[in-house]
Design a protein around this nucleic acid. Sequence first.
DNA 1: AACGCCTTCAACCGCGGTTAC
DNA 2: CGTAACCGCGGTTGAAGGCGT
Length: 280
Amino acid sequence: MSRGRSVLKSTSYEFGSELRRGPWTLEEDNLLIQYISCHGEGRWNSLAKFAGLKRTGKSCRLRWLNYLKPDIKRGNLTPHEQLTILELHSKWGNRWSKIAQHLPGRTDNEIKNYWRTRVQKQARQLKVDSNSKKFLEAIRTFWMPRLMEKMEQDSSLTSSPSSSISSMDTQNFTAPSPVSSQVPQPSSKPGNGVNSSDNNSSAKISPLPAESLVTGKIQSENSLEDNYYYVGSPSYDMQELEAQHISLSECHVAEIDWFWNTDELWQFRKPGEVGVCLDI
DNA sequence: AACGCCTTCAACCGCGGTTAC
DNA sequence: CGTAACCGCGGTTGAAGGCGT
């Protein structure tokens, strides 16, 4: 509420009065709400004039649609809503208003902000373009299944038949590609690891369910370092590795870019490199 | 406490499409 | 048909607040 532009600029208006800009005051909000409750929305320029608001019609429309309208939902987007945004954006791109039509109570502005602040942030962290195929693939392969897991967790917690998940049939939800079809089969030979089938493309994502990987803290010469993970072939036994004091350089690290471990997304820029945890 | 950097999001801007005259 | 006004959309801005040092 208190966020946004607070510097009140104004522009000259007819008959010497001025157009207000910047954050809306409570009085302005009340004027707008009262006027719309009596006369309905639309015809924004004349609405602004007759409601006694020294605002442009555009400004009134924006304030109403993005903030004052009674059915506006406030608060964080649910996993279900996030999933819907990711799915619809992959279909339609930056068609925010079209996407918003499928999210009752959410505005195009809110969805746009979500995309720019959360989704594009991930792309930056992964050092890929948010419109790239690679990032889209990461979303479909990693992010969407995680959101679906969260939705299932939420629905089992609430155990309400009318929970938000019920509004979308997750069985028929097309977004996440079936992971199993994309998982490269791990070799049984130590050292062969979990390679991508496409050796030409170092940028290719090789989606792997975390449970198929051996993950663990990196073992350096004499100690286990905190907060780093390596990813290895499932054919390795973690305890055996530790027992043998096999160092990171001796481990085969899978040629993957990302993997999920509990609630964390880890990025590996190249095999053998220390992973970086990204916040989702 | 003070400062600087980063993130969030309300609000503005410009443009293209639509409508009214 | 031309044009001005209006409307809606997507991109951008910038202040507030959070957070680390």
